[in-house]
């Protein structure tokens, strides 16, 4: 692999170079403590060394609020919402978020492929960046290294004086062409160590989770959980949505919109007439975790959790998905050793 070097003091110039080619979205501060992926207007505002954004790149392809159509109440006609390819450079993306997009791609392509999502997905050039695992990251446990380059067109690996640049595809090559990058003088360093691990070998995923359906952990978590749904809403592989009608104040028209929804929310399974199919917080917590580690994995062979740590980092009650899964694993192993 051809490794180049981007010195820290040239990052701004590099961002400017990218901005000349396409719109660039990259991590930027939105508050003293928060970083979000936003459109870049000022190259100096880009932050490549960050823990995590609250929302992943998902928001560009499946926006939190997404108009599906607008309607005219006077003649009952409608106009489909214009959906455009994002056609942009996504800069400074962590490997787990790229892996999450593979999962969303699967969801929106299988069965009935969805035009809205798939159209927006077009024209994206991916520039990844390595991350230093913090107290919440555990993507290593689901097979995603901080240096994983799969799915990226180019990848930046943080070193002390700057970044090592890997060009991975033709699109990546085009991106850096015209910007002089000297060859790197040293190889890629080893990725940083994770502080969080789930001890669930992928081969045993199905077996362990299947045995955990009646674990007491769900009820225990229900004691701590307030059911606010934050864990769903920040998850990069959650894609559930609700649909709402908005009527203009003139009462002559309006829009039909889809809005992110979450299985931790009480109304998620409520049908007209009032029946709620997963009424308890324990059942909802189980469904959330099983979706990540069993239900969708059974179909595809891949865990639907990418180890970004968001659900734990943004849980005010301090509920940790790592602890939940590890508890399932240890209870499973205990039962199996005692059985022998």
């Amino acid at each position: 692999m051809d490794l180049k070097f981007l010195a820290s003091d040239r990052v701004e110039a590099f961002v400017s170079h990218l901005m000349q080619q396409k719109t660039v979205y990259a991590p930027q501060h939105t508050g003293k403590h928060s970083v979000a992926l936003e459109k870049v207007d000022d190259p100096a505002a880009v932050i490549l060394d960050y823990g995590r954004t609250m929302q992943s790149v998902k928001k560009f392809f499946l926006p939190p609020r997404d108009e599906l159509l607008s309607f005219d109440l006077t003649d009952h006609s409608f106009t489909p919402a214009a959906v455009e390819p994002l056609d942009a450079i996504l800069l400074g993306i962590h490997s787990y978020d790229r892996a999450a997009i593979d999962r969303l791609d699967y969801n929106f392509s299988q069965g009935h492929p969805e035009k809205n999502y798939l159209t927006r997905r077009e024209g994206v050039v991916w520039v990844g960046v390595s991350f230093e695992p913090d107290e919440f990251h555990f993507s290593g446990s689901v097979g995603i290294s901080p240096h994983e380059t799969a799915g990226f067109d180019a990848f930046l690996t943080r070193v002390r004086e700057g970044y090592l640049v890997e060009v991975l595809t033709d699109a990546g090559r085009e991106l850096v062409s015209g910007f002089e990058l000297p060859p790197a003088e040293r190889p890629k360093p080893a990725p940083g160590h994770f502080h969080q691990h789930i001890f669930l070998p992928q081969a045993k995923l199905n077996e362990v989770m299947a045995a955990s359906y009646n674990n007491e952990i769900w009820a225990e978590m229900a004691e701590k959980c307030v059911g606010c749904g934050s864990c769903n809403i920040v998850c990069p592989t959650c894609y559930c949505f609700n649909v709402e009608e908005n009527v203009d104040i003139t009462v002559t028209g309006g829009t039909r919109e889809r809005i992110w929804d979450g299985c931790m929310l009480r109304e998620f399974t409520e049908v007209a007439g009032g029946e709620v199919f997963r009424g308890g917080l324990a059942e909802r917590q189980r469904h959330r975790v099983m979706r990540k580690f069993k239900y969708l994995s059974d179909k595809t062979g891949h865990p639907w959790c990418v180890g970004c740590g968001r659900c734990t980092a943004y849980c005010t009650a301090g509920i940790s998905i790592v602890s939940i899964v590890n508890r399932c694993v240890s209870d499973f192993e205990e039962r199996h050793t005692t059985a022998m």
Partner: peptide
Amino acid sequence: MKLNESVSTQEPQDLYLPVM
């Protein structure tokens, strides 16, 4: 298994547009 192998090759559809 690669994730995208099981994906249908149908053209993307306008799934949410009703027929009046």
